[in-house]
Computed example of a mutant assay.
Amino acid sequence: MTPAARVQAAIELLDEIIEAARSGGAAADTLIARYFKTRRYAGSKDRRAVRELVYRAIRRSGERPALGRAAMLGLAQEDEALIALFDGAPHGPAPFEAGEAIADASVVPAWLRDRFDPLVDEAEFPALLERAPLDLRVNRLKAFVDEVRAELPESVPTPLSPLGLRLPEGFAAEDHPLWHSGAVEVQDEGSQLLSQAAAAKRGMLVVDLCAGAGGKTLALAAEMANEGRIVASDADRSRLSRMQPRLERAGVTIVEQRLLNPMRELEALADIRGKADVVLVDAPCSGTGTWRRNPETRWRLTPERLSRLVNLQAHLLDVAAELMKPGGTLVYAVCSLLAEEGFGQAEVFGRRRSALVSEALDISGGRASGSGRLLTPAHDGTDGFFVARWKASC
C-alpha cells in the first residue's frame, strides 16, 4: 500500500468505528481485524501503519466526529507529511477543500468535563489517553514471582501489586509458554489490586457478581489457594462462556458459573442469599478509567447511557447486599473516574444500607475519595478505578 492508500484505509476504518460507536456495534479492534481479513494485499507493515493512524486520530478527538475524514483531517492539521497525502492520488484521499469539516482536538467530551472525580483535574486528562503498559499477574497456584521474572528478564515488578510484572510494549504475552501453562495472566495492575481488596481467604464462599470472562475470578481463586467456593455470575452469556478455558489453564477448580437474568439476579442466586463471605461487584460502568486501552469508548457514552449505568450499579449493589452473610464483606469497583459512579454511588448506597459499615482498604496506591479510593493513570500508572468496601454487622 502507498502512504496515501494507508491514509484512505484509515479513513474508511474510522467511518466504520464512528458508526459502530453511534449504533452500539463492534469495538475498534474487532472492526480493524475484520477490515484486513478481507484485504489480503495489505502486509504487516501496512496493517501496523493503518492501525497507528486510526488510533492517533481516535485519541485526538474527544468528541465523536461526523466522519472518518474529519477525524483524519484533524490529525493531518498537525502533521505536514500527512496533509501532503491528501492529494487525490489513486487509492488515496481526495484533496482538502476550504471549509471542509475538521475534528477538533480534545481529550474529554465537553459534557463530561465537570463530572469527573475532583481528584482528576485538567492536569490529569492527558494521561487518560497515554498508551497503557502490559502487565501480567503471576498465578500463585502455579508459580512464584521470582521464578517468572527469571524466565522474563525483560520484565520489571509493578510498583503497587506484589504479583505484577510489567513488560515492554509489543511483548506477545499470549504466545509465551508461561501464559499457556497458566503461570501468568494478562491483567492491569489496578485490577490486581481490586482482587486483593476483597481479602478472600481459603475456605470462603465468594461471589463475583459481574464476573465477565473471569479475570478477577481467577485472581480471587489464587488468593484462596483454590480452596473454598466461588460463584462467578454474569448476565452476558458470551463473556461468561470465555471463562472455562481460562479456569482450566490456571488450574482453578473451585468456580461455579451462573448466568443471570438482568434485574432478576437473586432468582439464580437464591441458594446463597445471606451466606456469602465476600461479594465483589465489579460493575458495568462508563469505562472512563480505561480510555488508554479503548479510546473510542468516549464516542459511545451519552448522558442517557451513563444514567442507565448508574441505575444498574445501584441495583447490583442492592443485590450484593442481599447475598452477604452477617460479618461478610462487600467490595464495589468500577473502572470509572466519574464522581457519580464512584464516591457518589458509594455515598448513596451507604445511606440506603446504613447497617453496613464502611471499611478502610488495605491496598497500595490510590487516593481517598469519599468512603473509597481512586486509582488513576496519572497518579498510579494503572487504569482508572474507584473501589470501596463495606462490612455487614454480625
Rank of each mutant, 00 (worst) to 15 (best):
W390E: 07
E122K: 11
L218H: 01
E256V: 11
A339D: 03
L269C: 10
G214P: 00
A200H: 03
A276S: 14
G372K: 06
A103K: 00
A198N: 03
V348T: 05
E174D: 13
R64A: 07
E154R: 02
V255A: 05
R242T: 10
A84N: 08
P303H: 07
A392S: 14
A81V: 01
G327W: 01
V319E: 07
Q8E: 15
D29E: 13
K325Q: 15
D380T: 09
T288Q: 08
P126E: 06
R300W: 04
F144D: 15
K142T: 12
R242E: 09
V231N: 07
E52I: 00
P90Y: 09
R47C: 08
F171V: 14
G287S: 11
S181A: 15
V107S: 00
L134Y: 02
V331I: 14
G190Y: 06
K45G: 07
V319P: 01
R140M: 14
T217S: 02
L323H: 09
M324L: 15
A378V: 06
L317E: 00
R242I: 14
G372C: 07
G24Q: 01
P133L: 07
A123Y: 01
D234E: 10
S369K: 06
E340D: 12
S61A: 15
C285L: 01
I18A: 06
D282Y: 06
G214H: 02
E78G: 05
A360S: 13
D277A: 10
G372Q: 10
M72V: 09
L134D: 00
P65S: 12
V138W: 07
C210G: 04
E169Q: 08
L266N: 04
A360N: 15
C285T: 00
D188W: 03
R39Y: 08
A4S: 15
A49L: 12
A172D: 13
V281Q: 00
E347V: 01
A250H: 03
V310I: 12
E16V: 01
G289A: 07
L141R: 10
G214Y: 09
P245R: 08
F349W: 13
R249C: 09
R39M: 06
A42T: 09
N261V: 15
L209M: 11
D383G: 04
F96V: 08
S336K: 06
V156K: 03
Q192G: 13
D236V: 00
K325V: 14
V334D: 01
R47K: 13
L269S: 10
T288S: 14
R264Q: 15
G381N: 04
T297M: 06
R308T: 05
D282K: 00
S106Y: 12
M243P: 03
W390C: 01
Y55Q: 05
A70S: 15
L13A: 03
S358M: 02
A197E: 01
R140I: 07
D117Q: 05
Q8M: 11
S358R: 11
L112S: 04
A20D: 02
D29H: 05
P377T: 08
L259S: 03
D234K: 04
V184H: 07
A211W: 02
Y41C: 04
R131L: 02
W390I: 03
A57K: 00
N261Q: 15
